[in-house]
Write a protein that binds this DNA or RNA. Structure first.
Lengths: 336, 336
DNA sequence: TCACTTTGTGGCACTGTTTTAATGATATTT
DNA sequence: AAATATCATTAAAACAGTGCCACAAAGTGA
């Protein structure tokens, strides 16, 4: 591939002049500028981002580290982040740790080697040591899952409130035998949703038996299916299930179909996230909508600000609101 | 961040020796090796991938360009590619063109600037000019959607056969008023599935009216929903719909629920891809399974081979088989 | 002992770009 | 006319590594 030197030679100028033309800074006469542009076109010159990164000591690359890119929530989040950063001329190295702390650590190490300019991380939640090496070297924005012991800027959803609202919705419909399932358990987001649900029960005087709160290692269809099957075979069975993610909720719906239960009359299901599928599955899933786009854009914007203004010592926490999306998967329990 | 020079100074050796230790090549006495390793640990040294890339003239980065990363099929494909390449020490720059040829071209340009070592591309299908600039400069592997006019290595699924099998399945159940919907129309994969379906009809003596073949610009829930609504309001309405992707099939299922049709008795639906959701949605979706993992791994492996052996002029085409997954969304038409 | 190989180490050129300092030319002010 | 800006350009020094070459010491075989 053509280098700046070849372009300079072709145009009969110095490399410095070509550099100035490429970067549109400094002084260069119109006549030479045209000659250079012509030479670049002729040689099909593309400036090397790697040489530029080395010289400028910035890679215009940022790392995005999520616990599972095939989870619709993180897929959507990561995609919007990528899109927002790309619009500001940043590349993204996408890393999915698969809920595995050692993979997370391996990706952090890789990002350090790559000399990324910053990182947006939704951590697994297995402790904060894995992402610690990043903090002293570059701006880091935390999203979705909190790690309370870290000093950095966060963008979080109000998970406690979301959990509270979900449970309150079920209670208001008349449910009293309610189960909560989801995971992974070390996710602070899941924990807060569960805490919110517990508080809602306490406030309403409803008993939330601890045998009705089940956590799975992953948030997948299969987990929701298996946990729900277990719950729905009990006597008496719960009349409502709060699934901590929409994906788990879909698994629950599958389990209830397997047992020939009809939704929402035999069982109410409420999810969490509001992924696109939620409004297309049948019955349409009542869920707590996370502001995924706003979370992603906010995280990207905060990172860009830090990159522009240099590392600032004042950290902030942005907390975004959730919204109940009432659809067809929840109703009053049969016989009430 | 510490440089190799600082490490060399700390260990009291030359940078060449440090380099040899880092890359485990050349001769280094055990005594010095230990001193160097100790200095690296002490200074928390991470070799700069960017400096190394510049000097070695290879970035260990490869571009993955898909038409839509939020489509479950491409998400799964891209993820397995990334995973496979990461295991061979390659980083991935993930690019989603959103079915937009100009974005595709912009990403290609970006990948050229980044000096990626190779690209795996599932093109939009809007002509081959956009990816043409890559061909002369690096190995490129094409997946999923063919561009027949290009000389390169391809990994394709047997879409014609898949379409043929899907339609044959519906015909064997006794359906004669069958519709085909999906998209985007410029995707050669979709075209081939449709052609396969047409051939199956011809072979079986079933008439596939062209008014029953509807293409949408995107493959999303919404498109399936809207097209199906249109079809199902006709008189007489089709008794079966072949959705060219599972995502579209979910939209079809939503539309049939909207019209209070019961699946599979009032309407049979068959999809294509076999995304994880297909077996969890209710009724479980009969579909043509694409070997997503094998496609991804094959593409990654072929690229790695080309990177290792230098650019070979002999291109190959790998075609993978599909498999009918018979589930609960298809049955004989009512009254037959 | 000589010729040759193996082992161990440092020096330096090189990768493609940006940027600083230096220099010259031209225009503007004293 | 001299001093001073302003404009235009180039040479050269980074940036952080790699890898070739030279050289030295030590080992090997005849």
């Amino acid at each position: 591939m053509a280098t700046i030197k070849e372009v300079a030679h072709e145009a009969g100028v110095s490399v410095a002049t070509v550099s100035r033309v490429v970067n549109k800074n400094g002084y260069v006469s119109e006549e030479r500028r045209v000659r250079v542009v012509e030479a670049m076109r002729h040689l099909d010159y593309k400036p090397s981002a790697v040489a530029r990164s080395l010289r400028r000591q910035e890679s215009l690359t940022i790392g995005v580290l999520v616990p599972g890119i095939h989870q619709p929530f993180f897929a959507a989040l990561a995609f919007v982040i990528q899109k927002t950063l790309f619009a500001s001329d940043y590349r993204v190295l996408m890393c999915s740790s698969e809920e595995d702390a050692s993979k997370e650590a391996a990706y952090v190490d890789m990002l350090l080697h790559q000399r990324v300019d910053g990182v947006i991380v939704a951590p697994t939640g297995h402790g904060s040591e894995t992402i610690h090496p990043l903090l002293s070297r570059m701006p880091v924005i935390l999203v979705d899952r909190d790690l309370p012991d870290l000093a950095l800027t966060r963008v979080l959803a109000d998970n406690f409130r979301g959990g509270y609202d979900a449970m309150t919705h079920l209670i208001a419909l008349g449910h009293t035998r309610i189960a909560v399932i989801g995971g992974p358990p070390y996710s602070r987001a899941m924990e807060q949703r569960t805490d919110g649900a517990r508080r809602a029960c306490a406030d309403a005087g409803v008993v939330l038996d601890s045998s009705m709160v089940l956590m799975s290692e992953l948030s997948e269809f299969k987990m929701g299916f298996e946990l729900a099957l277990d719950l729905l075979r009990r006597h008496p069975r719960p009349t409502a299930i709060f699934a901590l993610t929409d994906v788990v909720a879909v698994g629950v719906m599958h389990a209830s179909a397997e047992l020939k239960l009809s939704l929402p009359h035999d069982l109410s299901v409420i999810g969490f996230d509001d992924i696109p599928l939620a409004s297309y599955i049948i019955p349409a899933l009542t869920t707590i909508a996370q502001p995924i786009e706003r979370m992603a854009e906010t995280a990207a914007r905060l990172l860009l600000e830090r990159l522009k203004n240099g590392v600032n010592e004042s950290f902030e926490t942005v907390t975004l609101d959730m919204k109940l999306m009432q659809r067809a998967s929840t109703a009053a329990p049969r016989g009430s």
